[in-house]
Structure formats: C-alpha cells, structure tokens
Amino acid sequence: MSIQHFRVALIPFFAAFCLPVFAHPETLVKVKDAEDQLGARVGYIELDLNSGKILESFRPEERFPMMSTFKVLLCGAVLSRVDAGQEQLGRRIHYSQNDLVEYSPVTEKHLTDGMTVRELCSAAITMSDNTAANLLLTTIGGPKELTAFLHNMGDHVTRLDRWEPELNEAIPNDERDTTMPAAMATTLRKLLTGELLTLASRQQLIDWMEADKVAGPLLRSALPAGWFIADKSGAGERGSRGIIAALGPDGKPSRIVVIYTTGSQATMDERNRQIAEIGASLIKHW
C-alpha cells in the first residue's frame, strides 16, 4: 500500500482519535458579512469528516447552483462504474471539434489522439474542462443518470439537468442544476469515506481534487503551510461562485467545507476574496 493510499485508508482512524471539535460562531459572522459585502445569498456548511456531524452552517438547506462543483460527483459516478466493471479508466475516447464547448483548455489539445477516461476526469476536476465533463456525462448516460446515481446514494436534493455550459445559467428560483450545502457536503463525505467506492477509487477521487489547479484564489489562499486540501470550485452566471473541499491540518483532511453564493453584482475577484476570507476565519478558529 502506498503512503497516499495509507493516508486515505486511515482518515477515519486518525479522526477518531482527534480531540473533540467545537464550532466557532466567528466564522458564521464572516459568512454573514460576506453576504453584506456581496449583496447576495451565501450558503455555508462545515462537517466533521469522521462523524458527519454538522459543526457550523448557514442557509444549509437553500438551493444554490452547483456550477462546476458537480464534476466531482460526476467522476465519482464514473469511478463507481469502474468498480462495477462497467468502465475502464484506460479506455480512450475520441471526439471532434464539434464536441468542444466553451472553456476546454485540455480537451482542445487532444482532438487528434483523444483522451482516456482517467485523463478526462483529471481534466474535468483539476482544470474544470467543460468538454471533458460533457464527454464523461455521455459515458454514464447524461445528466439524468448522474441525478439517479445521487438518488441511489441517498441524495434526493442534488440534481443535474443540463450539460456544460448551460448548467451554469443560475436563474433565480430555478431548481435545475442545483444542490443544497448540506446535501453536497453529505454526498461528498460519502464519496470520500464511505463504502460506495473502493479504496482505490476513493484515493483516485481525492487525488484529482488535491491536484486542483484553478481554485488557488479561494480556500487555498488562506491555508497555512502543512495543511491538506482537496477541492473543486465552480463559477456561473449572475454572480455565482462555489467551492467544495476536504481539508485539515497535519497533512490530512478532517472536515468537509461547502460554500456557495449566487445573485451578486460583485466582480469575480471580490467573490473570490470573500470566500478566501471565510476560509481564513475557519482556519483561525479551527
């Protein structure tokens, strides 16, 4: 067993022997301040990774656009098919120029040779490549099948209805392509620590998230040296922004954090800054 596999296998073990965790309302004060600064709703939840206990939450059962955070769930569904012998990570998928959609920095470079399922998941999570996500959605049967996968996990809230990039439209009061912070946090925890996926697939999923290259201005910008984070960000229309993450000190994750916002007129930089400040408060009061 590799060191990384050992780390993920012992996530519940280490967490069980940690000192009790206590909620700190100071972080919620910052979440509410972010709402004021952005002029928009902000949803927040913080779960203990081992027990699933909610440590703090704000608007945990209000719907927010998922945006690209759905790509972690998508690759979880792909990995479940791999575990069941219905898919192979090494299978190569070929596609054409007509398949390319807006923001496809990886797939646009491989029109000639195609990409493997493993490479597509890596591109979808680490670079948020939209064509990679659409190609992977095709392998599982489309958005409705991802929703069905989530329902089978016990998540009857999260739903995907459309493809990239239309799913980022974020129309107010439109339930399409949305989740709730509580539902997303619980589902992410199941994917990373539950028995739904094999140990190898859980490790692969967290490795992809740990290698995320496009979430630097968010929670990662607030992390002290030595902290662990595996995350996936999302951005959408109407001032929408979000991030889902597993993080913790001492090089291992111990909490799940989900943050979503929508309806702001603020710039992307300002949305990023507010999420980073929430992260800084979380870490300060850990």
Rank of each mutant, 00 (worst) to 15 (best):
P25N: 13
E26H: 15
E26T: 15
E26R: 12
T27F: 12
L28Q: 09
K30S: 06
K30C: 07
K30T: 06
K32A: 10
K32V: 07
K32L: 06
K32I: 08
K32R: 08
A34V: 10
A34T: 07
A34Y: 06
E35C: 11
L38S: 09
L38A: 09
L38R: 05
G39A: 10
G39K: 09
R41A: 12
V42Q: 02
I45R: 04
I45Y: 14
D48R: 04
N50Q: 10
N50P: 07
K53E: 06
E56L: 07
S57Y: 08
S57F: 14
S57A: 11
S57E: 07
F58A: 11
F58G: 11
R59N: 09
E61L: 08
E61W: 09
R63D: 03
F64E: 00
M66Q: 14
T69I: 08
T69P: 13
F70R: 00
K71I: 00
V72R: 01
V72S: 07
L73D: 04
L74W: 01
L74Q: 03
C75R: 01
A77K: 04
V78K: 02
S80H: 15
S80C: 13
S80M: 13
S80N: 15
R81A: 08
R81L: 06
R81Q: 08
V82E: 08
D83I: 07
A84E: 05
Q86E: 05
Q86I: 11
E87I: 09
E87V: 09
E87W: 04
Q88E: 14
Q88A: 08
L89M: 12
R91F: 05
R91K: 13
R91L: 08
I93N: 10
H94F: 05
N98F: 09
L100V: 07
L100A: 10
V101F: 06
E102P: 06
Y103I: 06
S104T: 12
V106A: 15
V106H: 11
T107P: 01
K109M: 10
L111S: 08
L111E: 11
T112A: 12
D113L: 04
M115Y: 08
M115K: 05
R118C: 14
E119N: 11
E119D: 15
C121I: 11
S122M: 07
S122C: 07
S122H: 06
A123G: 09
A124M: 14
I125P: 01
S128P: 01
S128Y: 00
D129V: 01
N130L: 01
N130M: 01
N130P: 01
T131S: 13
T131V: 14
A132E: 01
A132I: 00
A133S: 10
N134C: 05
L135Q: 14
L135D: 01
L135N: 11
L136M: 07
T138D: 12
I140F: 14
I140L: 10
I140Q: 10
G141Q: 04
G141I: 15
P143I: 10
K144Y: 05
E145P: 07
E145R: 11
L146G: 05
L146W: 06
T147S: 07
T147F: 03
T147K: 03
A148M: 03
F149S: 14
L150S: 11
N152T: 10
M153I: 04
G154W: 05
D155M: 02
H156T: 13
H156W: 12
T158C: 03
R159N: 14
L160E: 02
D161W: 03
D161T: 11
D161N: 08
R162C: 13
R162G: 09
W163F: 05
E164A: 00
E166V: 12
L167G: 05
E169P: 08
A170K: 15
A170E: 10
A170P: 13
P172C: 13
P172I: 04
N173F: 09
N173Q: 11
E175L: 12
D177V: 00
T178C: 05
T178P: 00
T179W: 00
M180G: 14
A182W: 05
A183V: 13
A183Q: 13
M184D: 01
A185L: 02
T186K: 11
K190Y: 15
K190E: 13
T193D: 08
T193C: 14
G194A: 12
L197T: 07
L197N: 03
T198G: 08
A200Y: 07
S201R: 11
S201E: 02
R202Q: 14
Q203E: 04
L205I: 06
M209D: 00
E210S: 10
E210I: 15
D212C: 14
D212K: 03
D212R: 12
D212Q: 07
A215S: 15
G216F: 14
P217A: 13
L218D: 04
L218T: 07
R220A: 06
P224S: 08
A225L: 06
G226H: 05
W227G: 02
W227S: 02
F228P: 00
D231A: 09
K232E: 01
K232P: 00
S233V: 02
A235C: 14
G236W: 02
R238C: 09
R238E: 06
R238D: 11
R238L: 13
R238T: 04
G239N: 07
S240M: 08
R241Y: 02
I244G: 02
A245P: 01
G248A: 05
P249E: 06
G251Q: 07
G251L: 13
G251M: 14
G251V: 13
K252E: 09
K252A: 10
S254Y: 04
S254E: 05
I256L: 08
V258Y: 01
I259R: 00
I259M: 11
I259A: 09
S264T: 05
Q265E: 06
A266T: 07
T267G: 08
M268A: 12
D269T: 13
E270F: 03
E270H: 03
E270Y: 03
E270W: 15
R271T: 12
R271Q: 09
A276K: 14
E277A: 12
G279K: 01
A280C: 12
S281V: 10
L282N: 11
I283F: 15
K284R: 13
W286C: 01
